[in-house]
């Protein structure tokens, strides 16, 4: 890692690795980036995915006949939902296949993946699960699905919607459980230890529940809606976008973040748009509304500059599973790869 000083702008005195970034130029804005092995899959806002090797070789593949509305990955495949009513899978070998075509061509608003191979998606008010064996089930909630997440253990799907979250066990006859909280719940995520469930709401706030007893956790104070959430490698911290610093909520104790102050890391004169925690170390990558990308050590807030501000917001960040590669994308497809 090269040290040194950057003489431009407000990041004058921090270490920088900007000269080690391999630039990647893509055809359009990027919705998400995930690694399949050492290959970065930059999923576009529209139609295609671009696979980029560590050497910078790029291959573009078609995914959808329109906008890509949602993306999920388990490291072995990338699954996307589109406004063409399709759920599409990109495998590690670069093969693209259509998993689902909605008969009414409804938008596929959300997708989620389970470690055992199951896929979940939603269209309108209905959430669907297809098990690794190909068995399909569906569950309708009372309003449009805002987000989907599989629990880390068992086959249990969290479905967020207006006024709360439904916990559905596709393989059990028992009725789905409801967690209620007024408002519109969009993104949803389980803590890796399976003890907490957190939603990103339509208003600039997170809401959480302790799953053992349903106790509420309100996480507020954001100036903007939280669109990016990422758990730290050990699962004890939740890093979030939505403020002009990375907001990190502590989840180590049995009460989660209740009664505790969140960490506020890497303040800039710009809003954090994207966060991605390193898969092994207490390090996170943060992307900002002005295009800056920083690496931040979560223990002490030390920062390393990966990309200077160039005005267009960072839209995607992703780590390879071994933590050796970071990919980012900003604006209309200005992207990069960094080997650590």
């Amino acid at each position: 890692m090269t040290g040194g000083f950057d003489s431009t702008g407000g990041t004058a005195s921090i270490a920088t690795v900007t000269d080690r970034v391999k630039p990647v130029e893509l055809a359009g804005a990027v919705a998400a980036v995930h690694f399949l092995g050492s290959v970065a899959a930059f999923v576009g806002d529209e139609e295609t995915v671009t696979l980029v090797t560590p050497e910078g070789e790029a291959t573009q593949l078609p995914l959808h006949a329109g906008a890509v509305l949602c993306v999920a990955s388990d490291g072995r495949r990338v699954v996307t939902g589109g406004d063409d009513g399709k759920v599409v899978q990109l495998s590690q070998n670069g093969e693209v296949s259509t998993l689902v075509t909605d008969p009414r061509r409804r938008w596929i608003d959300n997708v989620a993946l389970h470690a055992d191979g199951a896929v979940a998606w939603s269209a309108g008010k209905t959430a669907y699960v297809r098990s690794g064996k190909g068995e399909e089930k569906s569950h309708e909630v009372k309003s449009t699905v805002g987000g989907l997440a599989f629990a880390p253990k068992g086959l249990r799907l969290a479905i967020s919607h207006y006024n709360g979250v439904t916990l559905w066990f596709p393989n059990m006859a028992a009725a789905a459980e409801g967690l209620e909280w007024a408002g519109s719940h969009l993104g949803v995520t389980f803590s890796p230890d399976n003890k907490f469930l957190v939603t990103a709401m339509h208003e600039p706030a997170l809401h959480g529940w302790r799953l053992a007893d349903g106790r509420h956790m309100r996480m507020t104070g954001y100036p903007a809606r939280v669109r990016s959430l990422s758990w730290s490698a050990n699962g004890k911290m939740l890093a979030t976008s939505g403020a002009d610093t990375v907001i990190v909520w502590p989840f180590a104790s049995k009460d989660g973040p209740m009664g505790k102050e969140p960490g506020m890391l890497a303040p800039l004169q710009a809003r954090v748009t994207t966060v991605a925690c390193h898969p092994k170390e207490d390090i996170l990558a943060a992307g900002y509304s002005n295009g800056t990308v920083l690496l931040v050590r979560m223990t002490d807030g030390a920062e390393i500059l990966v990309r200077k501000n160039d005005d267009a917001a960072v839209t995607a960040l992703g780590w390879s599973a071994d933590g050796g590669l970071l990919a980012f994308a900003a604006g209309e497809g200005t992207a990069g790869l960094l080997a650590l």
């Binding site: 309108g124 449009t144 007024a182 709401m201 339509h202 706030a205």
Partner: peptide, 8 residues
């Protein structure tokens, strides 16, 4: 679906 909700 016309889904109206109250802001908190």
């Amino acid at each position: 679906d016309e889904e109206v909700f109250e802001m908190n």
